[in-house]
Amino acid sequence: MPEIPAIEVENLTKVYTSNGKVTRAVDGISFALTPGTVTGLLGGNGAGKTTTIAMILGLIEPTSGHARVMGAEMPRERYRVLERMNFESPYVDMPNRLTVRQNLTVFGRLYAVADLRERIAAIAAELELSDLLDRPTGKLSAGQKTRVSLAKALINRPDVLLLDEPTASLDPDTADWVRSHLERYRGEQNATVLLASHNMAEVERLCERVIIMKRGRIEDDDSPGALLARYGRDNLEDVFLDVARGRGEAAREAAQ
């Protein structure tokens, strides 16, 4: 029996209509992610990454097509799988007046985490938050807040983790620290991770597969090594620029 993909997207389309103007934010994309893999979703601003992730999360209803997580159709069947998923995004905050411990307690209860007190202590130790547990979340630095958001995203030990620019606005040291933790988590839990990022070094380091989006469509989809070879480039940033500036085809032909 074939393995059910952790995430499966099939002809997924999102069209917004505003004042008679039609915008195809996501335009008929398809991909399937094998359980236990880390995939990067690359693309410039407005490429459709966040909309795609939001449809997979069930926060946005597709205009047509399908988004399935562990076999559950999103958003219709989301309650089958939401306890086994989580996400983190710089566009979503935690309540600032609550302490870190209070925030993790609330989300731990929402996700039915067993032995919550011990789980909070453990994840705080892992993410070096133990000394910050009783401080208001709003009083923390950007890097500390990101670690709190990550703690929230990992509180239920998710099988599927969606991350929207998890290291945006972090200094290189903290960003590297976050990446190391994500690598460790994926290794320990065999979790599936879908990561939207503008940081090419991050994607190169963490992801075994890269999906490049442009104007709502998938422009390319392969392993980082295969993409570098195909475009004749040394790093993903140059591949990204080739695609973003419309010279992807020329670069591919030149590399052949």
Binding site: G58, L59, L82, S89, Y91, M94, P95, F107, L110, Y111
Partner: peptide
């Protein structure tokens, strides 16, 4: 409104909370 002010609504709507 506290959820809107704190930009926490998406966290809740994506959680198992009905």
């Amino acid at each position: 409104l506290e959820e809107m002010w704190s930009r926490n609504l998406a966290n809740l709507m994506f959680s198992p909370l009905r």
